[in-house]
């Protein structure tokens, strides 16, 4: 492994300055659960690691109706915060199943997003929550919807000197519910063959879907926002028939490959099943949130 220096900035400006100076030869560092593995595997070399865990904006978890998750906040802080867990169960679905306990002590949803794996468990729940990624760089701050953040497997929108500071999750509307499920052949500690996050908001009558969002993992080059299936949900009755049809539509938006984890055909079927199931869970959560 190429030797690198360890930089622990105390402010965002310092972090941006180091990243800008080194360009592609430096990376922000939170839990290290992806970047250290990739460095050892020889995927790329770095001259500097920029640890964000001393930067306040990247390490705060702030619930105030909406939820701001610092990019370096580890998973356990999200699911062990009882107020956050009660308000955002759809995010907890993912934060509590990424890796094992040791990984959850370190891995962050921000890092999961920046790593831009197509099979990332954390990204689809953020998408269906309409989460915005707050990016800081040499030109200041910019805000990117999470569904536009990943550009290809392992690639994201961050430019030279830019880093992800935080994830801003809007306050859930009354009647909102969300859920995430993945399929793996084991009980835990595995990479999704396919994953689906769904969210819906019930209308005034409590029986009609006012709006919905569906996102798909491990069935395309990036986690995908299923725009057609999401649009289909608006105005439909919140019934198993609607959920099944949404699953059929979502499966037409998936572009899976076949690999060691599963065939493309299997993944298409999984999208249908997981869409149905996550919408049903989201409905239950929406009903208890009215």
């Amino acid at each position: 492994m190429h030797p690198f220096t360890y930089v622990a900035p105390r402010t965002l400006d310092e972090a941006v300055a180091v990243l800008e100076q080194h360009g592609e030869r430096a990376r922000p560092f939170a839990g290290g659960t992806d970047v250290l593995v990739q460095l050892r595997g020889g995927r790329f070399d770095l001259d500097a690691i920029v640890d964000l865990k001393g930067v306040p904006e990247a390490t705060t978890l702030d619930l105030n109706g909406s939820l701001r998750i610092g990019a370096a906040v580890p998973c356990y802080r999200i699911y062990e915060d009882s107020a956050v867990a009660a308000a955002f169960p759809g995010l907890i679905d993912a934060a509590s199943l990424i890796g094992g306990i040791q990984i959850q002590s370190r891995a962050s949803l921000g890092g999961n997003l920046c790593n831009a794996s197509p099979s990332a468990d954390g990204i689809c729940p953020l998408i269906v929550h309409s989460t915005v990624a707050v990016v800081q760089g040499p030109q200041g701050e910019r805000r990117v919807p999470v569904e536009e953040f990943c550009t290809a497997p392992g690639a994201n929108v961050l430019g030279r000197g830019e880093l992800l500071v935080a994830l801003e999750v809007p306050a859930p509307d009354k009647g909102f519910g969300a859920a995430y499920q993945r399929f793996i052949p084991r009980n835990e500690m595995d990479i999704a063959v396919a994953g689906v996050a769904s969210a819906l908001t019930l209308g005034e009558d409590g029986a009609t879907i006012a709006s919905g969002r569906i996102a798909l993992a491990a069935v395309g080059p990036t986690p995908l926002f299923a725009a057609k299936a999401s649009a289909f949900l608006a105005g439909k009755p919140a019934t198993p028939e609607t959920f099944a049809e949404a699953g059929e539509i979502a499966s037409t938006e998936a572009t899976p490959i076949g690999d060691m984890r599963g065939t493309a055909e299997h993944r298409i079927e999984l999208v249908k099943v997981l869409t149905r199931r996550t919408l049903a869970i989201a409905l239950g959560r929406a009903q208890s949130n009215r």
Partner: peptide, 13 residues
């Protein structure tokens, strides 16, 4: 107080 994989922690941290 949190368990971690020490292979994925930098000593400097």
């Amino acid at each position: 107080g949190r368990i971690v994989d020490s292979c994925l922690v930098l000593a400097a941290e």
